[in-house]
């Protein structure tokens, strides 16, 4: 409906502009619109496309005094060094497994939450449930990790108090490689499930109520109605969000990983992006880490394109 309006609205000016003489007059007539765009376009060129130009240092031996253009080419040296390094396996495995498990577990939960919310008829309870589950989304990463540290602390944290109360030994959760991924993923879900459910709740409320009525007439139980009406109704939204998530597959939660990382859990928490930060920014190996960063971005982009294509073919929904 809205897009139809927009299209109708878009029609008249095009008719008019086609009558106008050429592209140049059309542009000259709207010079002030370009004036508005001046700063944003300059910003995009400098701060978005500038770094893309700077990416060439991945194929060079960057020396600050010579600048990006003046440094000597190194070919694929940095890439081969990374692929031959002993930590490649660990970085790749951690990056892939953390993100894969995050998605496998974290993606369906907001959908389930939205289904639960939409099945609660009591208006007040419905609002309370939504508003409370949104809260953690607004807490900063630093505070989240702070809360994790005190909540899971072996001295006085309620989880360990409970374990001790049941006769167990306290666990040093935050300093354990074995627990790292579980803690990281479950706290992500705790923080974001409410927020991520909003879109699904909106999509569910847009489903035609007659479909539910019809299903009820046919004797479908509540669960069956969810399965046959609710879920098919939100599949397009699910597919779009899944594609967008895949597009950032390799860089979910980098800041949080960095904050949670310590020497004792690094075996499980070293991922590509934290490695780039430590080796690049802290140790100044710019060319080498730019190459690793590029490798990471290329995987992301490839995954996005693949999933988008797959979705267009199978679910007939895609980003473009």
């Amino acid at each position: 409906m809205k897009s139809a309006q927009a299209q109708m609205a878009a029609a008249p000016p095009q008719v008019r502009t086609r009558r106008g003489s050429g592209l140049f007059t059309r542009i000259a007539k709207r010079y002030d619109l370009y004036l508005m765009l001046l700063l944003p376009v300059a910003w995009y060129l400098i701060f978005q496309y500038g770094p893309m130009y700077g990416l060439q240092i991945a194929f060079k031996n960057f020396v600050a005094s010579k600048g990006i253009g003046g440094s000597h080419w190194a070919g694929l040296e940095h890439f081969t060094r990374f692929f031959d390094s002993y930590y490649l396996g660990r970085l790749l495995w951690n990056t892939l497994s953390i993100n894969l498990f995050s998605m496998l577990i974290g993606f369906p939960i907001p959908i389930l939450l939205a289904l639960i919310v939409s099945e609660i008829q009591n208006k007040t309870f419905n609002k309370v449930l939504q508003n409370i589950t949104f809260i953690p989304h607004f807490i900063s990463v630093v505070v989240i990790v702070g809360i994790l540290t005190v909540f899971l602390s072996p001295t006085g944290g309620p989880i360990n108090s409970l374990i001790q109360g049941l006769g167990g030994e306290p666990i040093r959760f935050m300093e354990s490689a074995g627990w790292f991924k579980t803690i990281f993923i479950s706290s992500n879900i705790w923080q974001n499930m409410g927020w991520q459910s909003i879109i699904y709740i909106a999509a569910l409320s847009g489903i035609n109520p007659q479909l539910y009525e019809a299903a009820k007439m046919d004797g479908a139980s509540r669960l069956r109605r969810i399965w046959h009406v609710s879920i098919p109704g939100i599949v397009p939204v699910i597919v779009i969000l899944l594609i967008l998530d895949v597009g950032h597959f390799m860089d979910i939660g980098f800041e949080k990983i960095l904050l949670m990382q310590n020497n004792l859990n690094s075996e499980a928490s070293d991922v590509i992006s934290t490695f780039v930060y430590k080796t690049g920014i802290l140790n100044g190996e710019y060319s080498y880490t730019a190459a690793i960063g590029l490798f990471n971005s290329v995987i992301n982009l490839t995954l996005l394109l693949l999933v988008n294509r797959f979705a267009r073919k199978t679910a007939e929904t895609s980003l473009w």
Partner: peptide, 15 residues
């Protein structure tokens, strides 16, 4: 396009 591909951490930092 910049939502899906960008220069990344190091080139941005150098800039």
């Amino acid at each position: 396009l910049t939502m899906f591909f960008n220069g990344g951490l190091i080139p941005t930092y150098l800039l």
